[in-house]
Design a protein around this nucleic acid. Structure first.
Length: 442
RNA sequence: GACCUCUUCGUCCAGCGGUUAGGACACGGCACUUUCACUGCUGUAACACGGGUUCGAUUCCCGUAGAGGUCGCCA
């Protein structure tokens, strides 16, 4: 029997949950699920000045939203707590004493430094391979500040020892820290965990992703009502591959395949567009009830004006929108086109229709046919359009674009016939009349 | 500047000592749809450069260039 697998994700609650951090958490989680083990969530909040409860809440909330659950840590407890570094000072004191007793540290202007062995250190990294780093000419690292507070490297290693961590999966930005950490493990006589450093994300233009960049913050996906499964799927595809042609995979499928040799070594640029595409794929396969639940929630929250709409009308409209959506927020635009008589008229469409030969006359013919419909159903409306086209001597298809524009103000959108039915004859004729005057002012 | 890592279509990801170098996003075309989309089919598009090793290198080695990371009493 080998030791039980214990991996940890150790965020610092200083800002927000970065999508790169989320991916690191995800890979830790995937590893645990793949090999069986325990995921420890440890909060590295030693820098009191920069930590906020809001940031912590955002991190926990973001992880939960993505479905990344932890077995030990904040809110769930565990046998290796406390899981906040700010509460572990006595442990750090004890470990520092060990180093003092064995002569590994020395005092320097009130701070405590580690006496580095000054020999090259080889990191056996599961992703990057063996990397030997010689930092013998660099200054000794500080472990404790004059005010008694501890430095990241020290607490990080002490906690990994104390929490019996066996695998460290973290961003490549930590690769050059690893020799320092290995020196500490050795000085403390503790086994060195298995390391895996995973490549970082970049913006599409190759620059570093920071908070304000599109897609950088997990909250932005929550705010835009992405489906977590889609985001997780996309995150898995960045830097990892099933090694076949699959793009859309469930987490279960990823778990079954997750391993080091599937992880890429080069940094990847974040393609928000592809993430959006995956979201549309997941959205499309939602069943009606689930879609309506999500869509109704979203529209109630973001388009409160629709509260006045009858439930059946709203439901019908939402279902009409479903096949068009890449993401839920597009609902706002579609619903406005359906329900708002005064939705703005698209300029490019206006110009196009205004320029059509005989446009005004043809649309007058169409209007009169629509007016004459006595039973306002899709079949009868279609017949009316056909008849109007015949009389105007144009193809029925040529009637569709102008009609769409007159109905919704836009040249694209939901399926036209059902939309006409939904809006109702009176409102349709009213809108046609209004917008016709905008298009042909004379 | 020093050290570490990386380099296949615009992007993500496969691949391999001999392939018409494959898939996906994006983009274009066609079909379907009397509309908008979806979908299907299809097209454009890549092995950073220079040396080796080899019968043969995109694939292995070395160098160059470019990119990223790290060089804190931040985490």
């Amino acid at each position: 029997m080998s030791d039980p697998v214990r991996v940890r994700f150790a965020p610092s609650p200083t800002g927000y949950l970065h999508v790169g951090g989320a991916r690191t958490a995800l890979f830790n989680w995937l590893y645990v699920k793949r090999h069986g083990g325990t995921l420890v969530l440890r909060i590295e909040d030693t820098d009191a000045a920069r930590n906020t409860p809001e940031a912590l809440a955002a991190i926990l909330d973001g992880l939960r939203w993505l479905g990344i659950s932890w077995d030990e840590g904040p809110e769930v407890g565990g046998n290796y707590g406390p899981y906040f570094q700010s509460q572990r000072n006595d442990i750090y004191d004890r470990y520092l004493q060990k180093l003092q007793d064995t002569g590994h540290v020395y005092e320097d202007g009130g701070s405590i430094r580690f006496r580095s062995p000054k020999v090259p250190v080889t990191v056996h990294d599961q992703v990057c391979g063996d990397i030997t780093i010689d930092r013998s000419h660099e200054p000794d690292m500080t472990l404790r500040r004059p005010d008694g507070s501890y430095i990241f490297h020290f607490v990080n290693v002490v906690d990994d020892i104390e929490m019996a961590i066996t695998h460290v999966i973290r961003g490549e930005d930590h690769l050059m820290n690893t020799p320092k950490h290995i020196e500490l493990f050795q000085a403390l006589g503790a086994p060195i965990p298995v390391y895996a450093h995973i490549p970082l994300f970049q913006n599409a233009d190759g620059t570093k992703m920071s908070k304000r960049d599109q897609g950088a913050s997990v909250v932005s996906y929550q705010d835009n009502a992405f489906l977590p499964a889609a985001v997780v799927n996309y995150l898995c595809l960045l830097g990892w591959s099933p090694k076949d042609d699959r793009e859309k995979l469930t987490v279960e499928e990823v778990v079954a395949l997750f391993d080091w040799d599937h992880i890429n070594r080069s940094p990847s640029k974040f393609d928000y567009n592809k993430c959006l595409w995956l979201n549309s794929q997941y959205l499309a396969e939602l069943d009606e009830a689930e879609f309506l639940r999500l869509a109704t929630n979203w529209s109630n929250e973001h388009v409160p004006a629709l509260a006045a709409q009858a439930n059946e009308a709203l439901t019908a409209a939402l279902l009409l929108c479903k096949p068009k959506l890449k993401q839920l927020p597009e609902l706002a635009e579609h619903l406005t086109m359906i329900f708002d008589d005064e939705a703005p008229l698209e300029e490019t469409g206006r110009t196009k229709v205004a320029a059509q030969p005989n446009g005004q006359g043809n649309l007058a013919i169409l209007t009169s046919h629509l007016k004459a419909v006595t039973d306002w159903t899709a079949d009868h409306i279609q017949a009316a359009i056909q008849a109007a086209a015949g009389e105007a001597k144009v193809k029925p298809g040529a009637m569709m674009f102008p009609l769409r524009l007159l109905l919704t103000g836009a040249g694209h959108g939901v399926d036209l016939l059902p939309a006409l039915v939904l809006v109702g004859q009176d409102a349709v004729l009213r809108r046609i009349d209004q917008r016709l005057r905008l298009i042909f002012p004379d």
